[in-house]
Design a protein around this nucleic acid. Structure first.
Length: 569
RNA sequence: GCCCUUGUAGCUUAAUUGGAUAGAGCAUUGGCUUCCGAAGCCACAGGUUGUGGGUUCAAGUCCCGCCAAGGGCACCA
Protein backbone atom coordinates (compact mmCIF):
# COMPACT_ATOMS: atom_id res chain seq x y z
CA UNK A 1 0.00 0.00 0.00
CA UNK A 2 1.15 3.46 -0.75
CA UNK A 3 0.64 4.58 2.85
CA UNK A 4 3.29 2.04 3.77
CA UNK A 5 5.65 3.62 1.30
CA UNK A 6 4.87 7.03 2.68
CA UNK A 7 5.51 5.81 6.21
CA UNK A 8 8.74 4.13 5.18
CA UNK A 9 10.06 7.28 3.61
CA UNK A 10 9.08 9.17 6.74
CA UNK A 11 11.01 6.71 8.87
CA UNK A 12 14.06 6.95 6.62
CA UNK A 13 14.10 10.71 6.85
CA UNK A 14 13.67 10.56 10.58
CA UNK A 15 16.60 8.19 10.99
CA UNK A 16 18.72 10.38 8.81
CA UNK A 17 17.87 13.50 10.80
CA UNK A 18 18.58 11.83 14.12
CA UNK A 19 21.99 10.81 12.84
CA UNK A 20 23.16 14.41 12.94
CA UNK A 21 20.58 15.98 15.26
CA UNK A 22 19.86 13.42 18.02
CA UNK A 23 17.47 15.63 20.02
CA UNK A 24 15.01 15.81 17.10
CA UNK A 25 11.44 15.32 18.33
CA UNK A 26 9.01 16.66 15.76
CA UNK A 27 7.00 15.14 12.94
CA UNK A 28 8.29 14.47 9.46
CA UNK A 29 5.63 15.81 7.14
CA UNK A 30 5.46 14.47 3.59
CA UNK A 31 3.49 16.22 0.88
CA UNK A 32 2.64 15.40 -2.69
CA UNK A 33 4.14 18.19 -4.77
CA UNK A 34 3.60 19.13 -8.40
CA UNK A 35 4.91 16.42 -10.70
CA UNK A 36 8.04 18.39 -11.56
CA UNK A 37 9.13 18.23 -7.91
CA UNK A 38 8.86 14.48 -7.50
CA UNK A 39 6.37 12.09 -5.95
CA UNK A 40 6.91 13.13 -2.35
CA UNK A 41 8.47 16.15 -0.77
CA UNK A 42 9.35 17.29 2.71
CA UNK A 43 10.02 20.69 4.22
CA UNK A 44 11.71 19.26 7.30
CA UNK A 45 15.00 21.05 6.58
CA UNK A 46 13.31 24.46 6.74
CA UNK A 47 11.71 23.59 10.05
CA UNK A 48 15.00 22.33 11.47
CA UNK A 49 16.77 25.44 10.25
CA UNK A 50 15.05 27.48 12.93
CA UNK A 51 15.80 25.01 15.73
CA UNK A 52 19.39 24.40 14.67
CA UNK A 53 20.10 27.94 13.51
CA UNK A 54 21.70 26.60 10.35
CA UNK A 55 21.21 27.10 6.64
CA UNK A 56 18.24 24.94 5.49
CA UNK A 57 19.89 23.97 2.24
CA UNK A 58 22.89 22.52 4.09
CA UNK A 59 20.59 20.64 6.42
CA UNK A 60 18.72 19.21 3.44
CA UNK A 61 22.01 18.04 1.92
CA UNK A 62 22.97 16.44 5.19
CA UNK A 63 19.65 14.59 5.32
CA UNK A 64 20.22 13.21 1.85
CA UNK A 65 23.78 12.24 2.68
CA UNK A 66 22.68 10.20 5.70
CA UNK A 67 19.68 8.65 3.99
CA UNK A 68 19.66 4.84 3.91
CA UNK A 69 19.30 3.27 0.50
CA UNK A 70 15.82 2.00 -0.32
CA UNK A 71 14.64 0.40 -3.53
CA UNK A 72 11.32 2.30 -3.42
CA UNK A 73 13.18 5.51 -4.05
CA UNK A 74 14.79 6.19 -7.38
CA UNK A 75 16.12 9.71 -6.94
CA UNK A 76 16.41 12.25 -4.17
CA UNK A 77 16.92 15.89 -4.91
CA UNK A 78 17.57 19.01 -2.85
CA UNK A 79 16.11 22.25 -4.16
CA UNK A 80 16.39 25.95 -3.44
CA UNK A 81 15.41 26.94 0.07
CA UNK A 82 15.77 23.36 1.32
CA UNK A 83 13.10 21.08 -0.09
CA UNK A 84 13.97 17.40 -0.23
CA UNK A 85 12.15 15.76 -3.15
CA UNK A 86 11.74 12.03 -3.72
CA UNK A 87 11.10 10.22 -6.97
CA UNK A 88 9.64 6.75 -6.61
CA UNK A 89 11.03 3.83 -8.52
CA UNK A 90 9.03 1.92 -11.10
CA UNK A 91 8.93 -0.97 -8.67
CA UNK A 92 6.38 0.89 -6.52
CA UNK A 93 4.74 2.96 -9.21
CA UNK A 94 3.70 0.03 -11.35
CA UNK A 95 1.53 -2.11 -8.99
CA UNK A 96 -1.14 0.60 -8.60
CA UNK A 97 -1.23 0.92 -12.39
CA UNK A 98 -1.70 -2.83 -12.78
CA UNK A 99 -4.42 -2.76 -10.13
CA UNK A 100 -6.22 0.11 -11.85
CA UNK A 101 -6.07 -1.71 -15.17
CA UNK A 102 -7.87 -4.60 -13.44
CA UNK A 103 -10.35 -2.20 -11.86
CA UNK A 104 -8.93 -2.61 -8.37
CA UNK A 105 -8.58 0.50 -6.24
CA UNK A 106 -7.14 0.04 -2.77
CA UNK A 107 -8.39 3.23 -1.20
CA UNK A 108 -6.98 3.85 2.28
CA UNK A 109 -9.58 3.87 5.04
CA UNK A 110 -10.72 6.88 6.98
CA UNK A 111 -13.16 6.83 9.89
CA UNK A 112 -14.65 9.50 12.12
CA UNK A 113 -15.04 7.17 15.09
CA UNK A 114 -15.11 3.53 16.07
CA UNK A 115 -18.55 2.83 14.63
CA UNK A 116 -17.33 3.38 11.07
CA UNK A 117 -20.81 4.61 10.35
CA UNK A 118 -21.94 8.04 9.26
CA UNK A 119 -25.12 9.70 8.13
CA UNK A 120 -25.33 12.19 5.29
CA UNK A 121 -28.47 14.27 5.35
CA UNK A 122 -29.11 16.03 2.06
CA UNK A 123 -31.56 17.08 -0.66
CA UNK A 124 -34.31 18.28 1.73
CA UNK A 125 -36.81 19.85 -0.57
CA UNK A 126 -40.02 21.03 1.07
CA UNK A 127 -43.22 19.38 -0.01
CA UNK A 128 -45.57 21.43 -2.19
CA UNK A 129 -42.60 23.44 -3.38
CA UNK A 130 -40.45 23.28 -6.45
CA UNK A 131 -37.33 21.13 -6.74
CA UNK A 132 -35.06 23.90 -7.92
CA UNK A 133 -31.55 24.17 -9.22
CA UNK A 134 -30.19 24.68 -5.70
CA UNK A 135 -31.63 21.33 -4.65
CA UNK A 136 -29.91 19.84 -7.65
CA UNK A 137 -26.57 21.16 -6.46
CA UNK A 138 -27.34 19.93 -2.98
CA UNK A 139 -28.20 16.43 -4.12
CA UNK A 140 -25.16 16.27 -6.41
CA UNK A 141 -22.94 17.25 -3.49
CA UNK A 142 -24.62 14.92 -1.00
CA UNK A 143 -24.59 11.94 -3.33
CA UNK A 144 -20.91 12.39 -4.05
CA UNK A 145 -20.03 12.82 -0.37
CA UNK A 146 -21.89 9.59 0.36
CA UNK A 147 -19.92 7.69 -2.26
CA UNK A 148 -16.62 9.18 -1.12
CA UNK A 149 -17.25 8.18 2.48
CA UNK A 150 -18.19 4.68 1.35
CA UNK A 151 -15.00 4.52 -0.69
CA UNK A 152 -12.88 5.05 2.43
CA UNK A 153 -14.71 2.28 4.23
CA UNK A 154 -17.66 3.78 6.07
CA UNK A 155 -21.19 2.49 6.22
CA UNK A 156 -23.20 5.47 5.07
CA UNK A 157 -26.85 6.20 5.75
CA UNK A 158 -28.51 8.52 3.27
CA UNK A 159 -31.14 10.61 4.92
CA UNK A 160 -33.38 13.39 3.76
CA UNK A 161 -35.36 15.85 5.84
CA UNK A 162 -38.41 17.47 4.32
CA UNK A 163 -40.72 20.20 5.52
CA UNK A 164 -44.31 19.05 5.18
CA UNK A 165 -45.78 21.24 7.90
CA UNK A 166 -45.38 24.94 8.49
CA UNK A 167 -46.41 28.20 7.00
CA UNK A 168 -45.56 27.37 3.40
CA UNK A 169 -47.94 24.43 3.64
CA UNK A 170 -50.62 26.61 5.21
CA UNK A 171 -50.27 29.09 2.41
CA UNK A 172 -50.38 26.56 -0.41
CA UNK A 173 -53.31 24.63 1.02
CA UNK A 174 -55.27 27.84 1.59
CA UNK A 175 -55.14 28.60 -2.12
CA UNK A 176 -55.48 24.97 -3.16
CA UNK A 177 -58.81 24.76 -1.35
CA UNK A 178 -60.04 27.53 -3.61
CA UNK A 179 -58.72 25.77 -6.69
CA UNK A 180 -60.47 22.60 -5.64
CA UNK A 181 -63.75 24.47 -5.27
CA UNK A 182 -63.30 26.17 -8.63
CA UNK A 183 -62.02 23.22 -10.68
CA UNK A 184 -63.25 20.18 -8.80
CA UNK A 185 -60.92 17.64 -7.24
CA UNK A 186 -61.55 15.05 -9.94
CA UNK A 187 -60.41 17.43 -12.66
CA UNK A 188 -57.21 18.13 -10.77
CA UNK A 189 -56.62 14.45 -10.12
CA UNK A 190 -56.76 13.86 -13.87
CA UNK A 191 -53.81 16.23 -14.35
CA UNK A 192 -50.38 14.85 -15.10
CA UNK A 193 -47.99 14.88 -12.19
CA UNK A 194 -46.15 17.75 -13.80
CA UNK A 195 -49.33 19.83 -14.03
CA UNK A 196 -50.27 19.07 -10.45
CA UNK A 197 -46.90 20.35 -9.31
CA UNK A 198 -47.34 23.44 -11.45
CA UNK A 199 -50.71 24.05 -9.83
CA UNK A 200 -49.18 23.77 -6.37
CA UNK A 201 -46.56 26.29 -7.42
CA UNK A 202 -49.23 28.64 -8.64
CA UNK A 203 -51.15 28.26 -5.38
CA UNK A 204 -48.07 29.05 -3.35
CA UNK A 205 -47.21 32.14 -5.40
CA UNK A 206 -50.73 33.55 -5.15
CA UNK A 207 -51.01 32.79 -1.45
CA UNK A 208 -47.67 34.43 -0.84
CA UNK A 209 -48.89 37.57 -2.59
CA UNK A 210 -52.19 37.62 -0.66
CA UNK A 211 -50.42 36.97 2.68
CA UNK A 212 -48.66 40.31 2.50
CA UNK A 213 -51.68 42.49 1.77
CA UNK A 214 -54.87 40.65 2.75
CA UNK A 215 -55.51 40.47 6.52
CA UNK A 216 -58.40 38.05 6.09
CA UNK A 217 -56.29 35.70 4.00
CA UNK A 218 -53.49 35.85 6.54
CA UNK A 219 -55.83 34.82 9.36
CA UNK A 220 -57.18 31.97 7.30
CA UNK A 221 -53.68 30.77 6.43
CA UNK A 222 -52.77 30.71 10.13
CA UNK A 223 -55.90 28.73 10.84
CA UNK A 224 -55.03 26.13 8.23
CA UNK A 225 -51.46 25.97 9.46
CA UNK A 226 -52.79 25.18 12.94
CA UNK A 227 -55.13 22.54 11.56
CA UNK A 228 -52.20 20.80 9.89
CA UNK A 229 -50.20 20.78 13.10
CA UNK A 230 -53.16 19.33 14.96
CA UNK A 231 -53.88 16.82 12.21
CA UNK A 232 -57.45 18.12 11.88
CA UNK A 233 -59.40 15.65 9.68
CA UNK A 234 -60.96 18.60 7.85
CA UNK A 235 -57.64 19.35 6.15
CA UNK A 236 -55.79 16.06 6.31
CA UNK A 237 -57.18 14.59 3.10
CA UNK A 238 -56.00 17.48 1.01
CA UNK A 239 -52.75 17.66 2.96
CA UNK A 240 -52.03 13.98 2.38
CA UNK A 241 -52.97 13.98 -1.27
CA UNK A 242 -50.93 17.04 -2.22
CA UNK A 243 -48.04 15.77 -0.14
CA UNK A 244 -48.10 12.50 -2.07
CA UNK A 245 -47.94 14.33 -5.38
CA UNK A 246 -44.93 16.21 -4.14
CA UNK A 247 -43.18 13.12 -2.89
CA UNK A 248 -43.69 11.25 -6.17
CA UNK A 249 -42.37 14.26 -8.01
CA UNK A 250 -39.27 14.35 -5.82
CA UNK A 251 -38.74 10.62 -6.32
CA UNK A 252 -38.65 11.25 -10.04
CA UNK A 253 -35.98 13.90 -9.58
CA UNK A 254 -33.83 11.68 -7.34
CA UNK A 255 -34.03 8.80 -9.74
CA UNK A 256 -33.05 10.95 -12.67
CA UNK A 257 -29.78 11.89 -10.95
CA UNK A 258 -29.13 8.38 -9.59
CA UNK A 259 -29.86 9.13 -5.95
CA UNK A 260 -31.98 7.39 -3.38
CA UNK A 261 -32.47 7.58 0.37
CA UNK A 262 -32.44 5.04 3.16
CA UNK A 263 -34.75 7.18 5.20
CA UNK A 264 -36.84 10.26 4.48
CA UNK A 265 -37.73 12.26 7.57
CA UNK A 266 -40.60 14.72 7.65
CA UNK A 267 -41.31 17.60 9.94
CA UNK A 268 -44.75 16.13 10.55
CA UNK A 269 -43.17 13.12 12.30
CA UNK A 270 -40.66 15.02 14.42
CA UNK A 271 -42.51 18.07 15.68
CA UNK A 272 -44.18 16.27 18.59
CA UNK A 273 -40.93 14.80 19.87
CA UNK A 274 -39.31 18.19 19.29
CA UNK A 275 -41.94 19.96 21.31
CA UNK A 276 -41.74 17.46 24.15
CA UNK A 277 -37.95 17.70 24.22
CA UNK A 278 -38.03 21.47 24.26
CA UNK A 279 -40.46 21.39 27.17
CA UNK A 280 -38.19 18.99 29.02
CA UNK A 281 -35.23 21.27 28.41
CA UNK A 282 -37.28 24.15 29.77
CA UNK A 283 -37.78 22.19 33.00
CA UNK A 284 -34.06 21.51 33.18
CA UNK A 285 -33.35 25.20 32.77
CA UNK A 286 -31.41 24.76 29.55
CA UNK A 287 -34.12 26.65 27.69
CA UNK A 288 -36.01 29.53 29.26
CA UNK A 289 -39.23 31.44 28.84
CA UNK A 290 -39.15 34.89 27.33
CA UNK A 291 -42.00 37.05 26.06
CA UNK A 292 -44.31 34.08 25.90
CA UNK A 293 -41.90 31.95 23.89
CA UNK A 294 -39.34 29.33 24.85
CA UNK A 295 -35.84 30.33 23.81
CA UNK A 296 -32.21 29.34 24.14
CA UNK A 297 -30.04 32.15 25.38
CA UNK A 298 -26.87 31.67 23.40
CA UNK A 299 -25.12 34.81 24.63
CA UNK A 300 -23.22 32.89 27.33
CA UNK A 301 -21.59 30.87 24.52
CA UNK A 302 -21.14 33.80 22.19
CA UNK A 303 -24.10 32.65 20.10
CA UNK A 304 -27.42 34.17 19.13
CA UNK A 305 -30.64 33.69 21.03
CA UNK A 306 -33.24 31.70 19.17
CA UNK A 307 -36.82 30.56 19.69
CA UNK A 308 -37.63 26.85 20.11
CA UNK A 309 -41.33 27.10 20.95
CA UNK A 310 -43.24 30.11 19.72
CA UNK A 311 -45.84 31.96 21.76
CA UNK A 312 -48.64 30.00 20.09
CA UNK A 313 -47.12 26.85 21.54
CA UNK A 314 -45.79 25.42 18.25
CA UNK A 315 -42.24 24.17 17.91
CA UNK A 316 -40.21 26.33 15.55
CA UNK A 317 -37.70 24.92 13.07
CA UNK A 318 -35.24 24.83 15.99
CA UNK A 319 -37.69 22.90 18.15
CA UNK A 320 -38.35 20.38 15.40
CA UNK A 321 -34.63 19.90 14.87
CA UNK A 322 -34.36 18.50 18.40
CA UNK A 323 -36.92 15.87 17.47
CA UNK A 324 -35.14 15.09 14.21
CA UNK A 325 -31.75 14.70 15.87
CA UNK A 326 -33.10 12.19 18.38
CA UNK A 327 -34.86 10.16 15.74
CA UNK A 328 -31.81 10.11 13.49
CA UNK A 329 -29.46 9.04 16.26
CA UNK A 330 -31.91 6.46 17.64
CA UNK A 331 -33.01 4.88 14.37
CA UNK A 332 -29.52 3.81 13.39
CA UNK A 333 -27.92 3.18 16.78
CA UNK A 334 -24.72 5.07 17.18
CA UNK A 335 -23.23 6.99 14.32
CA UNK A 336 -19.86 8.71 14.23
CA UNK A 337 -20.95 11.75 12.35
CA UNK A 338 -24.08 13.30 10.96
CA UNK A 339 -23.33 15.53 8.02
CA UNK A 340 -25.98 18.10 7.18
CA UNK A 341 -25.60 19.43 3.64
CA UNK A 342 -27.24 22.84 4.00
CA UNK A 343 -26.80 26.44 2.79
CA UNK A 344 -24.69 28.95 4.78
CA UNK A 345 -27.54 31.09 6.05
CA UNK A 346 -28.30 28.28 8.49
CA UNK A 347 -24.93 28.58 10.21
CA UNK A 348 -26.30 30.33 13.27
CA UNK A 349 -29.25 27.95 13.42
CA UNK A 350 -26.98 24.90 13.45
CA UNK A 351 -24.51 26.33 15.93
CA UNK A 352 -27.37 26.76 18.36
CA UNK A 353 -29.22 23.50 17.82
CA UNK A 354 -25.92 21.56 17.98
CA UNK A 355 -25.13 23.32 21.25
CA UNK A 356 -28.53 22.55 22.73
CA UNK A 357 -28.30 18.91 21.65
CA UNK A 358 -24.92 18.66 23.29
CA UNK A 359 -26.36 20.05 26.52
CA UNK A 360 -29.20 17.57 26.21
CA UNK A 361 -26.96 14.51 25.77
CA UNK A 362 -23.27 15.01 25.41
CA UNK A 363 -22.50 11.33 24.99
CA UNK A 364 -24.90 11.00 22.11
CA UNK A 365 -24.50 14.26 20.21
CA UNK A 366 -21.26 15.87 21.36
CA UNK A 367 -19.00 16.66 18.41
CA UNK A 368 -20.98 14.47 16.04
CA UNK A 369 -23.15 16.98 14.27
CA UNK A 370 -21.57 18.70 11.31
CA UNK A 371 -22.89 21.41 9.04
CA UNK A 372 -21.44 20.98 5.56
CA UNK A 373 -22.00 24.33 3.96
CA UNK A 374 -22.87 24.23 0.31
CA UNK A 375 -23.45 27.54 -1.39
CA UNK A 376 -26.28 28.83 -3.50
CA UNK A 377 -26.63 28.67 -7.22
CA UNK A 378 -27.18 32.30 -8.01
CA UNK A 379 -28.61 33.62 -11.19
CA UNK A 380 -26.39 36.07 -12.98
CA UNK A 381 -29.49 37.99 -13.94
CA UNK A 382 -30.51 38.35 -10.32
CA UNK A 383 -31.64 36.43 -7.31
CA UNK A 384 -33.89 33.41 -7.53
CA UNK A 385 -37.16 33.99 -5.80
CA UNK A 386 -40.39 32.07 -5.95
CA UNK A 387 -42.31 35.31 -5.54
CA UNK A 388 -40.68 36.77 -8.63
CA UNK A 389 -41.41 33.56 -10.46
CA UNK A 390 -37.78 33.19 -11.56
CA UNK A 391 -36.96 30.01 -9.74
CA UNK A 392 -35.11 27.68 -12.05
CA UNK A 393 -36.42 24.16 -11.76
CA UNK A 394 -33.83 21.41 -11.51
CA UNK A 395 -35.40 19.42 -14.31
CA UNK A 396 -35.43 22.46 -16.55
CA UNK A 397 -31.66 22.84 -16.59
CA UNK A 398 -31.23 19.12 -17.23
CA UNK A 399 -33.65 19.32 -20.14
CA UNK A 400 -31.99 22.42 -21.57
CA UNK A 401 -28.58 20.83 -21.39
CA UNK A 402 -29.88 17.69 -23.02
CA UNK A 403 -31.43 19.71 -25.83
CA UNK A 404 -28.13 21.45 -26.30
CA UNK A 405 -26.26 18.16 -26.56
CA UNK A 406 -28.74 16.72 -29.02
CA UNK A 407 -28.46 19.80 -31.21
CA UNK A 408 -24.69 19.96 -31.13
CA UNK A 409 -23.85 16.28 -31.41
CA UNK A 410 -25.75 13.46 -32.96
CA UNK A 411 -26.18 11.34 -29.89
CA UNK A 412 -29.03 9.05 -29.07
CA UNK A 413 -31.67 10.14 -26.60
CA UNK A 414 -30.27 7.76 -24.00
CA UNK A 415 -26.69 8.96 -24.27
CA UNK A 416 -27.73 12.60 -24.32
CA UNK A 417 -29.59 12.05 -21.06
CA UNK A 418 -26.55 10.56 -19.34
CA UNK A 419 -24.34 13.31 -20.70
CA UNK A 420 -26.77 16.01 -19.60
CA UNK A 421 -26.90 14.74 -16.04
CA UNK A 422 -23.12 14.34 -16.08
CA UNK A 423 -22.55 17.86 -17.41
CA UNK A 424 -24.81 19.54 -14.89
CA UNK A 425 -23.45 17.57 -11.95
CA UNK A 426 -19.88 18.11 -13.01
CA UNK A 427 -20.36 21.83 -13.46
CA UNK A 428 -21.56 22.00 -9.86
CA UNK A 429 -19.03 19.62 -8.36
CA UNK A 430 -15.92 21.04 -9.98
CA UNK A 431 -16.34 24.06 -7.74
CA UNK A 432 -15.68 23.81 -4.05
CA UNK A 433 -18.92 23.36 -2.11
CA UNK A 434 -18.58 26.63 -0.25
CA UNK A 435 -18.25 28.86 -3.28
CA UNK A 436 -21.41 30.33 -4.76
CA UNK A 437 -22.05 29.44 -8.37
CA UNK A 438 -23.07 32.22 -10.68
CA UNK A 439 -25.33 30.50 -13.12
CA UNK A 440 -25.86 32.07 -16.50
CA UNK A 441 -29.01 31.08 -18.34
CA UNK A 442 -27.47 32.13 -21.64
CA UNK A 443 -24.16 30.33 -21.30
CA UNK A 444 -25.80 27.26 -19.82
CA UNK A 445 -23.55 24.36 -18.97
CA UNK A 446 -20.12 24.11 -20.50
CA UNK A 447 -19.59 21.13 -22.82
CA UNK A 448 -15.91 21.60 -23.55
CA UNK A 449 -12.76 22.33 -21.62
CA UNK A 450 -13.05 21.39 -17.96
CA UNK A 451 -16.38 19.61 -18.32
CA UNK A 452 -18.00 16.21 -18.09
CA UNK A 453 -18.13 15.68 -21.87
CA UNK A 454 -14.40 16.32 -22.09
CA UNK A 455 -13.68 13.67 -19.52
CA UNK A 456 -16.30 11.34 -20.93
CA UNK A 457 -14.93 11.78 -24.43
CA UNK A 458 -11.53 10.71 -23.20
CA UNK A 459 -13.07 7.71 -21.51
CA UNK A 460 -14.85 6.73 -24.72
CA UNK A 461 -11.58 7.15 -26.54
CA UNK A 462 -9.83 4.71 -24.22
CA UNK A 463 -12.65 2.20 -24.69
CA UNK A 464 -12.47 2.59 -28.43
CA UNK A 465 -8.80 1.69 -28.40
CA UNK A 466 -9.34 -1.22 -26.04
CA UNK A 467 -12.09 -2.58 -28.25
CA UNK A 468 -9.56 -2.94 -31.02
CA UNK A 469 -6.97 -4.67 -28.87
CA UNK A 470 -8.40 -6.06 -25.70
CA UNK A 471 -5.82 -8.57 -24.70
CA UNK A 472 -3.15 -7.54 -22.29
CA UNK A 473 -1.42 -10.88 -21.86
CA UNK A 474 1.18 -9.98 -19.29
CA UNK A 475 2.05 -6.67 -17.88
CA UNK A 476 5.79 -6.53 -17.45
CA UNK A 477 6.03 -2.81 -16.98
CA UNK A 478 8.10 -2.84 -13.83
CA UNK A 479 11.26 -3.55 -15.72
CA UNK A 480 10.46 -1.65 -18.89
CA UNK A 481 12.16 1.46 -20.02
CA UNK A 482 9.35 3.97 -19.99
CA UNK A 483 9.28 7.36 -21.69
CA UNK A 484 8.62 10.69 -20.02
CA UNK A 485 4.95 10.97 -20.99
CA UNK A 486 4.22 7.41 -19.86
CA UNK A 487 5.90 8.14 -16.58
CA UNK A 488 3.89 11.25 -15.79
CA UNK A 489 0.63 9.41 -16.34
CA UNK A 490 1.77 6.54 -14.18
CA UNK A 491 2.78 8.94 -11.44
CA UNK A 492 -0.62 10.63 -11.64
CA UNK A 493 -2.36 7.27 -11.44
CA UNK A 494 -0.33 6.49 -8.35
CA UNK A 495 -1.85 9.57 -6.66
CA UNK A 496 -5.45 8.59 -7.25
CA UNK A 497 -6.11 6.70 -4.01
CA UNK A 498 -4.57 9.42 -1.93
CA UNK A 499 -6.75 11.99 -3.67
CA UNK A 500 -9.89 9.98 -2.94
CA UNK A 501 -8.99 9.82 0.72
CA UNK A 502 -8.36 13.53 0.84
CA UNK A 503 -11.65 14.26 -0.88
CA UNK A 504 -13.48 12.05 1.62
CA UNK A 505 -11.75 13.57 4.63
CA UNK A 506 -12.64 17.08 3.59
CA UNK A 507 -16.04 16.30 1.99
CA UNK A 508 -14.75 17.81 -1.24
CA UNK A 509 -15.90 16.27 -4.53
CA UNK A 510 -14.10 19.04 -6.40
CA UNK A 511 -10.81 17.34 -5.55
CA UNK A 512 -11.91 14.35 -7.63
CA UNK A 513 -13.07 16.60 -10.45
CA UNK A 514 -9.77 18.42 -10.45
CA UNK A 515 -7.81 15.18 -10.40
CA UNK A 516 -9.79 13.59 -13.23
CA UNK A 517 -9.37 16.66 -15.37
CA UNK A 518 -5.64 16.63 -14.85
CA UNK A 519 -5.36 12.92 -15.58
CA UNK A 520 -7.51 13.27 -18.67
CA UNK A 521 -5.50 16.17 -20.03
CA UNK A 522 -2.29 14.27 -19.49
CA UNK A 523 -3.69 11.25 -21.30
CA UNK A 524 -4.97 13.29 -24.23
CA UNK A 525 -1.58 14.87 -24.61
CA UNK A 526 -0.01 11.42 -24.51
CA UNK A 527 -2.50 10.12 -27.04
CA UNK A 528 -1.81 12.99 -29.41
CA UNK A 529 1.92 12.49 -29.28
CA UNK A 530 2.27 8.72 -29.30
CA UNK A 531 0.86 5.88 -31.32
CA UNK A 532 -0.62 3.19 -29.11
CA UNK A 533 -1.82 0.33 -31.28
CA UNK A 534 0.95 0.91 -33.78
CA UNK A 535 3.74 1.08 -31.25
CA UNK A 536 6.49 -1.53 -30.97
CA UNK A 537 5.78 -4.71 -29.05
CA UNK A 538 6.82 -3.85 -25.48
CA UNK A 539 5.87 -0.23 -25.81
CA UNK A 540 2.49 -1.15 -27.20
CA UNK A 541 1.84 -3.40 -24.25
CA UNK A 542 2.72 -0.64 -21.80
CA UNK A 543 0.59 1.90 -23.60
CA UNK A 544 -2.42 -0.35 -23.72
CA UNK A 545 -2.04 -1.06 -20.02
CA UNK A 546 -1.92 2.68 -19.35
CA UNK A 547 -4.98 3.21 -21.52
CA UNK A 548 -6.83 0.56 -19.60
CA UNK A 549 -5.81 1.98 -16.22
CA UNK A 550 -6.78 5.52 -17.25
CA UNK A 551 -10.16 4.31 -18.46
CA UNK A 552 -10.93 2.45 -15.24
CA UNK A 553 -9.74 5.33 -13.11
CA UNK A 554 -11.93 7.81 -14.96
CA UNK A 555 -14.90 5.52 -14.55
CA UNK A 556 -14.20 5.04 -10.86
CA UNK A 557 -13.69 8.75 -10.26
CA UNK A 558 -16.86 9.68 -12.11
CA UNK A 559 -18.75 7.13 -10.04
CA UNK A 560 -17.51 8.85 -6.90
CA UNK A 561 -18.95 12.06 -8.29
CA UNK A 562 -22.27 10.34 -8.90
CA UNK A 563 -21.79 10.36 -12.65
CA UNK A 564 -22.50 7.46 -15.02
CA UNK A 565 -20.28 6.74 -17.98
CA UNK A 566 -21.18 5.96 -21.58
CA UNK A 567 -19.26 3.66 -23.91
CA UNK A 568 -20.02 5.59 -27.10
CA UNK A 569 -20.99 9.16 -27.75
C1' G B 1 -25.08 48.48 15.59
C1' C B 2 -22.99 43.35 16.51
C1' C B 3 -21.45 38.54 14.39
C1' C B 4 -20.13 35.19 10.24
C1' U B 5 -18.49 34.33 5.11
C1' U B 6 -16.24 35.93 0.66
C1' G B 7 -12.96 39.18 -2.63
C1' U B 8 -7.56 35.66 -7.56
C1' A B 9 -6.78 37.32 -15.66
C1' G B 10 -12.48 40.57 -19.33
C1' C B 11 -15.90 36.16 -17.47
C1' U B 12 -16.15 31.27 -14.48
C1' U B 13 -12.62 29.43 -11.20
C1' A B 14 -8.00 26.02 -8.90
C1' A B 15 -4.06 26.19 -5.66
C1' U B 16 -2.23 19.51 -1.83
C1' U B 17 -4.43 23.63 4.42
C1' G B 18 2.01 28.29 5.34
C1' G B 19 5.70 26.10 0.28
C1' A B 20 8.72 26.05 -5.07
C1' U B 21 7.60 29.90 -11.55
C1' A B 22 -0.46 31.57 -8.70
C1' G B 23 -2.66 26.50 -12.31
C1' A B 24 -6.85 25.90 -15.69
C1' G B 25 -11.42 26.63 -18.74
C1' C B 26 -14.40 30.09 -21.52
C1' A B 27 -13.93 34.33 -24.83
C1' U B 28 -9.95 36.58 -28.45
C1' U B 29 -5.65 35.43 -31.98
C1' G B 30 -2.63 31.87 -34.84
C1' G B 31 -1.40 26.72 -35.94
C1' C B 32 -2.17 20.84 -36.06
C1' U B 33 -6.09 15.25 -39.81
C1' U B 34 -2.63 10.62 -45.67
C1' C B 35 -2.23 7.64 -38.71
C1' C B 36 -5.71 4.38 -32.72
C1' G B 37 -12.58 9.01 -32.12
C1' A B 38 -10.62 16.83 -33.80
C1' A B 39 -16.44 16.72 -28.16
C1' G B 40 -9.21 16.53 -29.32
C1' C B 41 -3.95 18.73 -29.37
C1' C B 42 -0.25 22.88 -29.59
C1' A B 43 1.18 28.08 -29.35
C1' C B 44 0.55 33.46 -28.20
C1' A B 45 -1.67 36.84 -24.97
C1' G B 46 -3.99 37.95 -20.40
C1' G B 47 -2.08 38.71 -12.72
C1' U B 48 0.76 44.27 -7.87
C1' U B 49 -4.37 37.54 -5.57
C1' G B 50 -9.78 44.27 -3.24
C1' U B 51 -6.39 47.68 -0.39
C1' G B 52 -2.59 49.39 3.47
C1' G B 53 0.47 47.39 7.15
C1' G B 54 2.46 43.08 10.20
C1' U B 55 4.42 37.89 11.40
C1' U B 56 7.82 34.18 8.68
C1' C B 57 13.44 31.36 5.50
C1' A B 58 8.60 31.32 2.76
C1' A B 59 1.80 34.59 2.62
C1' G B 60 -3.64 34.08 -2.21
C1' U B 61 -3.53 31.23 2.54
C1' C B 62 -2.10 33.49 9.32
C1' C B 63 -2.78 38.58 12.42
C1' C B 64 -4.53 44.01 12.48
C1' G B 65 -6.83 48.34 9.87
C1' C B 66 -9.69 50.07 5.68
C1' C B 67 -12.97 49.28 1.14
C1' A B 68 -16.70 46.24 -1.34
C1' A B 69 -20.34 42.18 -1.73
C1' G B 70 -23.43 38.39 0.51
C1' G B 71 -25.70 36.19 4.83
C1' G B 72 -27.34 36.00 9.97
C1' C B 73 -28.88 38.47 14.63
C1' A B 74 -36.76 36.10 18.73
C1' C B 75 -41.33 33.58 17.66
C1' C B 76 -40.48 31.72 8.79
C1' A B 77 -38.49 27.08 7.20
Amino acid sequence: MYTMIEQNIGVLIRKSVIAFFPEFQGEVHLTTPQLQFGDYSTNIAMILARQMKRNPFEIAEEIVKNLEKNDAIETVQVLKPGFVNFWLSQKVLIPPLEDAARDIFKIPTYYFGKEKKVMVEFAHPNTLKLFHIGHLRNISTGESVVRLLEAVGNKVIRSNYQGDVGLHIGKTLWKMKQFVTELGIETIRAYSLHDKIALLGKAYAQAEAAYGVDEQAKKEIYRINKMVYEADPQIMDLWKETRDWSISYFEEQYKRVYSHFDRCYFESEVHKVGLATAKELLKQGILKESEGAVVFDGTQYGLDTRVFINSLGFPTYEGKELGLAQKEFNDFDTIDKNIHVVTPEQTSFFKITFKVEELLDKEKFGGKQYHLIYEWVKLKQGKMSSRMGNVVEGAWILDETKKNILEKFKDSELIAEVLAVASVKYSFLKNSTNSPIAFDLEESISLEGNSAPYIMYTYVRTQSILNKEKVVPSIRLATMNLGESERSIIRLLYQYREQVKKAAETFAPNIIAHYLYELTREYNLFYQKNPILKAEKDQKEARIAITQAVGKTIKNGLYLMGIETVEHM
